[in-house]
């Protein structure tokens, strides 16, 4: 970077004075070109974040006059009195624990299949990716219908196979796995990212294993997985961040029911803020989620050193 900057500064067309004014001009224009984005960051990210932190220490409500500073009361109430907070946390963790490994394993497996040198794989790729572009409302609508206990396709097929049928979205113990199932329909984006990672593995590596007489298992565990570990890392982080923030499914599929068994955290936050209009308290909820997501991201970054392999760096 430094050498590049110097090389630019030493442009033969400009003298020393020219270098300075050119630098100033570059700064001015660089600043101006990026100003809308920087303003956007201040207006829609940094400012609201600061305001949110402040609100979390108040009892602000949009339909109430006045605002009272309550210190850490919201957080104390949250952790000690609010059973729904704990419930929503449990529901969300349960979802994340099911959803993240399922997404990573299934989409990796599909990507491995698509990466085989088979005819028509572009078509298969399109088919797998297509559901991920469907609007969440429509996806939910289709799945409510597919999972309908009496008339839905899923139970019909199970009945036909003489297997036990389920209540799916309508029973407390099956609602979360059912929602995971509906979101698995949209894993196409993750599959495509895996495919990109897989296509970057040089063929010689596999050939070397073949020369040594190693089988597919050897190839998978000693070449494929280490070589795509940066992609696994990326997909894991993105899936975790996304899964903690599930909202649409809770709102459209179940409205948090039955009996709060799908009361996802962000859904609870939305309800607190916009239905109960307790914006101060909801801001406290938001900050707790922020900290949880940051902790998980940090944790994965920390552990990544031991399992993510970057070419040219070696494993440390």
């Amino acid at each position: 970077m430094t050498t590049k900057l110097m090389a630019q500064g030493q442009s033969p067309l400009l003298g020393k004075a020219g270098t300075r004014s050119r630098k100033q001009k570059a700064f001015l224009y660089g600043f101006l070109f990026t100003l809308p984005a920087t303003l956007g960051f201040l207006l829609f990210t940094a400012g609201p974040m600061a305001a949110s932190l402040f609100l979390s220490l108040t009892d602000y409500s949009i339909f109430k006059d006045g605002i009272r500073f309550v210190g850490l009361d919201n957080f104390i109430r949250l952790f000690t009195e609010d059973e729904l907070f704990w419930k929503s946390l449990k529901v969300t963790f349960y979802f994340v624990v099911l959803k993240v490994p399922a997404t990573i394993i299934v989409s990796f497996a599909i990507a491995l299949l698509l990466n085989m040198n088979l005819k028509g794989r572009a078509l298969f790729r399109t088919i797998v990716y297509l559901p991920s572009i469907v609007p969440a409302v429509a996806t939910s609508m289709i799945w409510i219908w597919l999972l309908n206990p009496d008339l839905g396709l899923v139970n019909t097929v199970l009945r036909w196979l003489h297997l036990p049928t389920g209540m799916w979205l309508y029973a407390e113990n099956s609602v979360i796995p059912s929602i995971v199932l509906t979101t698995m329909w949209g894993i196409g984006g993750t599959v495509v990212i895996f495919l990109a990672g897989l296509s970057g593995i040089p063929n010689q590596y596999y050939e070397a294993i073949e020369v040594d007489g190693g089988g597919w298992r050897h190839k998978l565990f000693h070449i494929t997985i280490p070589m795509v570990s940066p992609t696994i890392f990326f997909n894991t982080i993105m899936t975790i961040i996304g899964s903690f923030q599930v909202f649409n499914e809770a709102y459209i599929l179940t409205q948090g029911g039955p009996n709060n068994s799908s009361l996802f955290y962000i859904f609870y936050l939305w309800r607190t803020a916009f239905r109960d209009t307790e914006m101060g308290y909801a801001s406290a909820l938001a900050w707790v989620m922020f900290v949880i997501i940051m902790l998980f991201t940090l944790l994965i970054f920390r552990t990544s050193k031991s399992w993510v392999y970057y070419e040219g760096e070696g494993r440390s």
Binding site: F44, P48, M49, Q245, A282, A286
Partner: peptide, 14 residues
């Protein structure tokens, strides 16, 4: 990387 929930409420109020 920021969860949208943190900025949601003040943005709405604004």
């Amino acid at each position: 990387m920021l969860p949208g929930a943190v900025t949601l409420i003040p943005t709405f109020i604004g």
